[in-house]
Structure formats: structure tokens, C-alpha cells
């Protein structure tokens, strides 16, 4: 699936839309940034509640292309600015991390499980 499908198919609110609409090959769900650094794949979507600019720094360093912020967390302006500069897409949803992971898994990996 492409990044833009996060809003066109799944209805997540796009908060930062200056990004290259590439194919997502994987996803990672975590609120621990060191865990994200160690384990997340490249060209992945990150599912998290960490709505601050350090999350963007970590995403940029490991090659994450899009971040979905769960539980309708308020997103700070400086996070949006940094994401724009790095070309990382930001989305927000009122769903939680478990629900978003479940939704995206089949779309990225073909079938659940």
C-alpha cells in the first residue's frame, strides 16, 4: 500500500502532507523510541502515541516514511514543522495502536497473521 492510502482508504487525518507517496513495505508499533531505532524496518509506517519531534528524528534516522499518531493525541506544531522538513508523512486517528496495527497489517503484508 502507498502512504496516501492511510487517509484515502483508512480515513486517518493527514496532518503533514509534504511527502513522497511511496509504497510501505512494513510497519512497526511502539512507544519506545529506542525500540523503534533498534527494530523498525526501512520504508515502514510507525504506529505510536509519541506526538513530539524526537519521534520524527528517530523516524528519519531509520528510514520510516510515515507516522500514525493514535488516540487522537494532540500534535505539536514543531513536530509538524520537522516532519515537513524531513518529508515524513504524519497522520492522526482516534483509534488505538492495536486497532491501527490490525487494520494496516493485511494491507501491507497481504493477509493477517
Amino acid at each position: 500500500m502507498r502512504i496516501s492510502e492511510l487517509s484515502s482508504v483508512f480515513g486517518f487525518e493527514c496532518i503533514q502532507d509534504s511527502y513522497e507517496d511511496v509504497e510501505l513495505h512494513d510497519g512497526y508499533t511502539s512507544d519506545l523510541l529506542s525500540d523503534v531505532m533498534a527494530k523498525a524496518a526501512q520504508d515502514a509506517v510507525l504506529i505510536t502515541i509519541q506526538a513530539h519531534k524526537n519521534t520524527v528524528a528517530v523516524a528519519s534516522l531509520v528510514g520510516i516514511r510515515a507516522i500514525v499518531l493514535c488516540n487522537a493525541r494532540p500534535i505539536l506544531d514543531d513536530m509538524i514543522e520537522v516532519a515537513k522538513a524531513e518529508g515524513i508523512a504524519l497522520f492522526r486517528t482516534d483509534r488505538n495502536q492495536f486497532q491501527v496495527s490490525g487494520l494496516l497489517y493485511p494491507a501491507i503484508h497481504g493477509k493477517a497473521g
Binding site: 529506542s34 524526537n54 519521534t55
Partner: peptide
């Protein structure tokens, strides 16, 4: 709470 300090660094 910022997502750091998990002892993974």
C-alpha cells in the same frame, strides 16, 4: 513518558 529511558540505549 517521552519514549526514552527504557534501558535500551
Amino acid at each position: 513518558s517521552l519514549g526514552f529511558g527504557a534501558g535500551l540505549g
